[in-house]
Design a protein around this nucleic acid. Structure first.
Lengths: 244, 244
DNA sequence: CCCTCGTGTGGCATTTAGTGTCAGAGTAGA
DNA sequence: TCTACTCTGACACTAAATGCCACACGAGGG
């Protein structure tokens, strides 16, 4: 690396995080994660080695920087989410999948790197655990009745099942990122419905009426097309007036 | 460190793994994980720095060496366990807890270190993920009927819930290792019974009643957003299987 | 008994991740 | 314009991790 003006300490022009991440992803993919030094990344990203460490901490953190932002976003969402605690957690998980789908340029090559390098895999798993822990604590704090002991146990198991289902669908997409997002969301909704069935009973160990509820009962011909059916249900919901 | 005979490369006397681990745990606990260098560990363990790296790979691996052995033991157990796949996984998980309880000299101080150092925490989480992955694959491969897609989803969620419950009880003991093992096992059995109730139905997603008409019944919080409600209804429709 | 071969170990050199420190450059505000 | 604050780059340094070579020991054959 050739420095034009030794002794020139620039300022103001902040480290372009996104550019650095993309450059790093490219280098890691092309030459391998281990073989790529921080000097290489710094040169490719147009910043100094020192600034690189200041911004990202470690070499692995470069890959997961945007994931950290996503986690922060999800955490914020949890604080202000409407509905029951379970609803909040489900919609938060949806946000995570959306975060992945929105940024395939980083998430897809990262997944391929993660599959190869145990160290990176551990890092990825740790991220997953962070979500799980956050969801678990959220549910335990606001969850239904029952003894505190059983409540936190149920919250932990529910969060774990939810995250597992989420990751199941997510990995399906990461392995084949070419498929239609609509189909991914379809599978995701099905997986979430599955988890909801299993998790629901866990959190209502005893009779605890969770606020006000409404009921939709729809009877329809067995051969009605899926899209048409969904459309009718949506119309019925809208006719029923505002919720709350 | 004073070397008596420079140039003396010993042999034969294999590195006493257990002694080194205990010495390392002590050093990490007394002076901190970061502050303890591999030279320190080597000196305390009575081996050379080079041999230390050969045996354990990294500094963190020293702490988790025995955990790796436990994982190998559990894996072997899975291969030869009697009973249903679910039974096998439950007994395997029991083996894990027993492994912790049997070796408090290492597992307890390690837990305290893990709580403080994010890096070690990630490593611990990765171990948990390895169990979860092994259990999930085991269940998916030998699990009950249903479509392969749903089967692996159910296996993943079940394994996750099981591991979460296991870790819930395990952490309870690690935080207060003085309590009676009998009481720990009591709590563990209760937690496992809880998980079994929730997980059992997940793995037996069978009977689909063929009817001319089908009914959707949705119960939802009154303040749930319109989009989320519609999404759930659509998911419920998809989940109900093909129409016609 | 000696020699040889294989295996495990120690010492040394080297690379590189990661940190502390200081100097310079730019920006905002008085 | 001068000053205070912030961000960046350069340099030095620690320590983890790896490659390489030399040496010690045990086993086996002559």
């Amino acid at each position: 690396m050739v420095r034009e003006r030794p002794g020139t300490g620039g300022a103001t022009a902040r480290v372009p995080t996104r550019d650095v991440v993309l450059a790093a992803v490219r280098l890691f993919t092309d030459h391998g994660f281990e073989a790529t030094t921080m000097d290489d990344v710094a040169a490719a990203g147009g910043v100094s080695r020192r600034s690189l460490f200041r911004r990202f901490g470690t070499k692995e953190d470069i890959l997961f920087a945007e994931h950290d932002e996503l986690f922060a976003e999800v955490s914020r969402h949890l604080e202000t989410a409407p509905g029951t605690p379970l609803d909040a957690v489900f919609s938060a998980a949806r946000l995570v999948l959306d975060g992945y789908l929105r940024d395939p340029e980083v998430t897809v090559p990262r997944y391929r790197l993660v599959r190869v390098h145990p160290r990176l895999r551990d890092r990825e798993v740790a991220m997953t655990a962070r979500y799980q822990s956050a969801f678990s604590r959220y549910l335990a704090a606001r969850g239904g009745g029952g003894a505190p002991e059983e409540r936190s146990l149920a919250a932990g198991a529910a969060a774990a099942a939810l995250i597992a289902a989420h990751n199941h669908v997510l990995r399906g997409w990461l392995r084949d990122p070419g498929q239609e997002p609509a189909r991914v969301w379809e599978r995701y909704d099905a997986a979430m419905a599955f988890v909801r069935r299993a998790v629901g009973p866990m959190l209502h160990a005893d009779g605890e009426a969770p606020a006000r509820e409404r009921v939709v009962v729809a009877v329809y011909p067995a051969d009605l097309g899926r899209d048409e059916l969904v459309r009718r249900l949506a119309a019925a919901v809208d006719e029923a007036g505002p919720r709350g």
